[in-house]
Design a protein around this nucleic acid. Structure first.
Lengths: 153, 153
DNA sequence: CGGGATATATAGCCTGTGCTATGAAATCGC
DNA sequence: GCGATTTCATAGCACAGGCTATATATCCCG
């Protein structure tokens, strides 16, 4: 039992249903933090590969937030072992960070490619993929990939 | 000028790209509030239709949050004109609230149905739909609906 | 109709993620 | 190698959305 929400001893169906319902919402809420991490790591990987380096100011610009916001988040990412900061030299991904970035990029590409295969316009596909990518389970992702594969052939 | 993020006067492609990128993230962030409202309104509609009434305690149980959290949110929803609270009699949807709930339910059903049509298992479809529904644009939703229609026939 | 159970309201706190203002450090051009 | 620019760090604030504890109001049953 990780978090005893509020187990009412009522043996009704509704009770069980409600608690499963609640679980879903709680997972979604807790996922928020992870999502932000993923956005950062993914962006950092992209910046490194496309610009050669990832600086705070550039990350801030891309995410549309202020630099101190980025600074604080990077500190956390460093503590969590995803990145390494070399002051005035940029931020770099650790092994763990690279693995996470690769996974995110793959997921992102599958989702975006899937939407495009479905006929969605490029811009909307990009936007929706950004929003959806964090909410797609492994099973769904696989189905998306398969769909694209069979459609593209 | 609603929010002058940080327009660097650099006429590079990267600059424009970065700002469009940023826009997307900002939209996603701002959507958070809306999402919560939608979850509440959707749940309230469901409770009213299935249980006959929507009480704070029940909403709290379903969402997996504490009752005061719900109380505060309901206050906001009432201020925003989505619901009307009748103390000790439950919470009711206004016209606006009902319209929003209907829209959310429709969207939810389409997304979940779409995932199922794609072969996703029931439980995963339900969970993923819950996460995805707030990030699906009108265009994508339409494509989902069409896919289901052509597949089901 | 009184009192326990239930429902709601309120106060006060914490954390996360934004922000601005400002200071300190490094880099780079000259 | 020095000064301006750039980059980063820090302090301090706001707000949203969690929480607990507690007070109050209502309901309902005996």
């Amino acid at each position: 039992m990780t978090k005893p929400v509020s187990q009412s001893p009522s043996p009704e169906d509704a009770g069980i249903d409600a608690e499963r319902h609640a679980e879903g919402f709680q997972k979604t809420r807790n996922a928020r933090r992870t999502e932000l991490c993923e956005d950062y790591v993914e962006l950092i990987a992209e910046l490194i590969s496309r610009e050669g380096e990832a600086r705070q100011v550039e990350i801030a610009r891309r995410l549309g937030v202020a630099q101190p916001t980025v600074a604080r988040m990077l500190k956390r990412l460093a503590e969590d072992g995803y990145i390494q900061q070399k002051p005035y030299r940029g931020v770099f991904l650790t092994r763990t960070g690279e693995a996470l970035a690769a996974e995110c990029q793959r997921r992102h590409e599958i989702v975006e490619g899937f939407l495009r295969a479905l006929g969605i316009s490029d811009e909307v596909a990009r936007h929706d993929a950004e929003g959806m990518e964090h909410h797609v389970s492994a099973e769904t992702l696989k189905a998306f990939a398969q769909f694209v594969a069979t459609r593209t052939v």
